[in-house]
């Protein structure tokens, strides 16, 4: 699985999220990330990363403008290798308290709510407890930069957990689809191993 095209990974670049760190982390793994912003590229990619920072509404608006909402829904419904990061995870939900009334990709059950924490945003490293059936997540510390989160495991997905004042969803996974609230690309050696496990499990 090391021929040219098998080493490629598409990274959704909407112009609002910073993708340099994700690209750098994938390159450190020896992979070849390339930016995509069209429906056809999103559909065609063997592996796809959906990074995200910023506000829920702005990101959904941008995905709509680029015509990526349906392609992303189809991709994930078909369980094709996809990694969503931070806001990328939240976008999979039906909606968010951050911007009430704005519909998300609505792929997983649940509403995004304020992080149960005394200080927001959460900026720093928090311990992750992997779900019993997780393929990708091991115990360790992950780097977070978020004010919102899921607090319940969506039906049909394996969830891993972290804690502030109460527990919240660290990651959800189903087959080759992994969505992390933390930033694996900024989580040191632990994050690198997480990315590597996703990569190995999503080969052709």
């Amino acid at each position: 699985m090391t021929n040219g095209s098998d080493n490629l990974v598409a990274v959704v670049a909407t112009g609002v999220a910073n993708v340099a760190s994700v690209m750098a982390a994938l390159r450190r793994l020896g992979r070849e990330p390339y930016p995509v912003s069209s429906a056809s590229e999103v559909m065609a990619a063997q592996r796809l990363v959906l990074p995200g920072v910023g506000a829920f509404a702005a990101a959904m608006q941008r995905l709509m403008e680029l015509g990526l909402v349906e392609p992303l829904r189809e991709r994930i419904a078909a369980e094709r290798p996809t990694l969503a990061i931070c806001l990328g995870l939240q976008l999979l939900a039906g909606g968010s308290d951050e911007n009430p009334g704005v519909r998300g990709l609505d792929i997983v059950d649940g509403q995004v709510v304020p992080l149960p924490a005394r200080r927001r945003p959460q900026l720093g490293w928090n311990r992750v407890a992997p779900g019993a059936e997780s393929r990708y997540i091991k115990e360790g510390y992950a780097y977070y930069a978020n004010s919102f989160c899921l607090t319940a495991a969506p039906a049909g997905w394996v969830a891993s957990w972290s804690h502030c004042d109460d527990r919240f969803v660290a990651a959800i996974e189903r087959g080759p689809v992994l969505a992390c609230q933390f930033h694996p690309e900024l989580s040191g050696a632990w994050g690198r191993e997480c990315l590597a496990r996703w990569w190995e499990a999503t080969g052709c």
């Binding site: 910073n18 760190s21 450190r28 780097y143 900024l186 989580s187």
Partner: peptide, 28 residues
């Protein structure tokens, strides 16, 4: 390129364009 932990960059940020330049280079 070398770093897999967060990177904050400061120095002379006066505008959106300045900040975007730093972020595009890889600041978090």
């Amino acid at each position: 390129q070398a770093l897999s932990i967060p990177l904050t960059v400061g120095g002379g940020v006066r505008s959106i364009a300045d900040a975007r330049r730093l972020l595009d280079c890889g600041a978090d």
